[in-house]
């Protein structure tokens, strides 16, 4: 009996550790890469500090980097995941500096802790390229690659205003409050709404970037009895949640729903006409651009301080083009 119990416990531990090892696979891979690289000095080694491997959009950004990496000779990129922990990211950046990588690509966990990381890299004379998340003082970094969040909000709302002929009641669905993208996208929305005297914000709430929460919020809004002409969401997942709630209530025909990100799921909703507007933030483009600039900086070439990857408006008319991009 006792032996059997121990055996069971052993098997469980084995399974758990197997799960653990496979989960940490990517990290191990990267540490192996570093050790193999220390011997070959002619290779350019780039350290890529990403906030969260689990984030869908960021995984596309990482894909962009990986694709660009493959197309290059003698470039190896070490990817590390900060798991949305700023202090972890700081130590990862410090490790990169210790490992003497040729350049760092940094997608900051948050914009408060980023300047410290940039300073550390500058002190050690390691070029550092900040990607995707902009903050005040980002010019201290070697370069910035990204899109201006506020432009997405402006572009999204302009299209909605056009669809509503410049008048109507707007409900704004915010992402996680306090995120840079939430603040700027909503700010962009409101700037456009202010320009139209017949448009006003009647409802505003947060669904924390999440589809299920977007659905719940929309259901509650529908219960409020307020007239809503458009739901303008900070991202697509929440917009899809809103669409599902509106469909359930049979009111999707009367409401324009707009999102941002142009995720593959969202593009299907655009294609079927349920999601009227989304905005494509070029994840792969940003990843590729970030790595490209980092490699240039590593080679000692001059780079532009600000490198804007433009947003693109996606509607039913051009959706096919974007569906192809994800394939």
């Amino acid at each position: 009996m006792k032996v059997q119990k121990r055996l069971i416990l052993f098997i469980i531990l084995l399974l758990l550790s197997a799960a653990f090892i496979s989960g940490c696979g990517e990290k191990q891979e990267s540490s192996q890469q570093t050790s193999s690289q220390s011997g070959e000095k002619d290779k350019i080694v780039i350290g890529a500090a990403l906030p969260d491997f689990d984030d869908k959009w960021l995984s596309y950004l990482q894909d962009g980097m990986k694709e660009y990496e493959k197309a290059q000779k003698d470039v190896e990129v070490i990817y590390v995941d900060a798991m949305n922990d700023a202090s972890k990211q700081l130590s990862q950046v410090e490790n990169f500096i210790q490992q003497k990588v040729d350049a760092i690509v940094l997608v900051p966990v948050d914009t408060v802790s980023a300047p410290e990381m940039v300073n550390k890299a500058n002190e050690a004379n390691v070029p550092i390229v900040v990607v995707n998340r902009q903050y005040e003082g980002v010019e201290n970094a070697t370069a910035y690659v990204g899109s201006e969040s506020i432009k997405a909000g402006l572009m999204q709302m302009e299209e909605v205003a056009k669809l509503l002929n410049g008048k109507g009641n707007i409900a704004i669905m915010n992402g996680q409050m306090g995120h840079e993208a939430q603040i700027k996208r909503t700010e962009g929305n409101k700037q456009i709404i202010e320009k139209h005297p017949d448009m006003k914000v009647v409802l505003e709430g947060t669904a924390e970037w999440d589809r299920a929460k977007g659905m719940t919020l929309m259901e509650n809004w529908l219960q409020s009895g307020k007239k809503i002409d458009a739901v303008v969401s900070n991202n697509d997942e929440m917009a899809i949640g809103a669409i599902m709630a509106l469909e359930d209530a049979g009111k999707l025909e009367d409401v324009v729903v707009a999102g941002i990100d142009a995720t593959p799921d969202a593009l299907e909703y655009v294609k079927s006409g349920k999601l009227k507007v989304t905005v494509f933030q070029n994840a792969k483009g940003q990843g590729q651009g970030g790595l490209e600039i980092a490699i240039k900086a590593a080679k000692g070439e001059n780079v532009e301080k600000f490198n804007w990857i433009p947003y693109e408006l996606v509607t039913k008319d051009n959706v096919e083009e974007y569906i192809k991009k994800w394939q």
């Binding site: 915010n174 009647v202 505003e204 709430g205 947060t206 509650n220 219960q223 409020s224």
Partner: peptide
């Protein structure tokens, strides 16, 4: 609470 605060359009900060 969640539903009522949404219906009343209470600001997301205050909701928390």
């Amino acid at each position: 609470m969640n539903n009522g605060l949404d219906l009343l359009n209470v600001s997301p900060y205050w909701q928390q």
